[in-house]
Design a protein around this nucleic acid. Structure first.
Lengths: 125, 125
DNA sequence: ACAAATATATGATAATAACATATATATGGG
DNA sequence: CCCATATATATGTTATTATCATATATTTGT
């Protein structure tokens, strides 16, 4: 038996949207090359306050995107702090952003329709 | 190596949002009791044209929600056509709708932020 | 008699998300 | 000097989800 809401805990995995950090990180990298930790913190700008900072989410998606050829990295051993990978976006990565945008628009439409219908019924504001 | 876009095929699974059909079906059932096939068709209203009609998606989610106690079903052998399960929403199911609405609002915020930022950069309309 | 539409259901597998954990360096305070 | 904390990256494991294919049966129209 599955439980998506037990007590105060919420178990609606479908809306955690781990994958959505990919286009978000791509946008951030398009704006400016950065390393993982930096991206992890900046994700809060996109409304991931409740999820981040989650290193696993960020680094695993960075690896995936590098495999895809959407981003590339180089080690930075100079400067303060431990060695870091500096990520930059590739032309393929830019294409991917546009691909994601299509899905985002479609999903936005779905969510809006749901909310309109929901509020019509339950009269919420 | 993973490929989310091969040729014309799109492989962005994160945005297919199978789980999102749950709150949509709950809303439909709140409006009026229905059976699976009916729900499957009505899902297009929520913008699932590209996914539905997908029997697996609909029936499996209905089973899950019945396990959760959000909906209940009874066989209808009378009337035209093959036997069908008539689903009705429970009070727990109504609670679940409100729970989902919270996630939908949060996700909507994220998607909007992404799109605003995206369009600011690429000047799309 | 047969095709198509209606209706429900599941098996198998690929992909994702969630959680815990491991690692190392640097910095500031006591 | 030592320790806690912040910085920084990385992976193993397991649970959950999504996708695709397929199975079943009834009814309606031709």
């Amino acid at each position: 038996m599955q439980h998506f809401h037990r007590g105060h805990e919420c178990r609606c995995p479908g809306f955690k949207m781990d994958r959505f950090v990919q286009p978000c990180m791509l946008l951030l990298l398009y704006e400016k090359p950065a390393h993982g930790y930096e991206l992890m913190e900046k994700l809060s700008e996109f409304g991931f306050e409740d999820v981040s900072p989650d290193p696993a989410m960020v680094y695993r998606n960075l690896r995936k995107m590098e495999e895809e050829g959407w981003i590339k990295s180089q080690w930075e051993t100079e400067g303060v702090g431990p060695a870091k990978r500096l990520y930059t976006i590739t032309p393929e990565g830019e294409d991917a952003i546009h691909g994601w945008a299509v899905h985002v628009k479609r999903q936005l439409k779905r969510l809006k329709h749901f909310l309109e219908r929901y509020e019509k019924i339950f009269n919420n504001t």
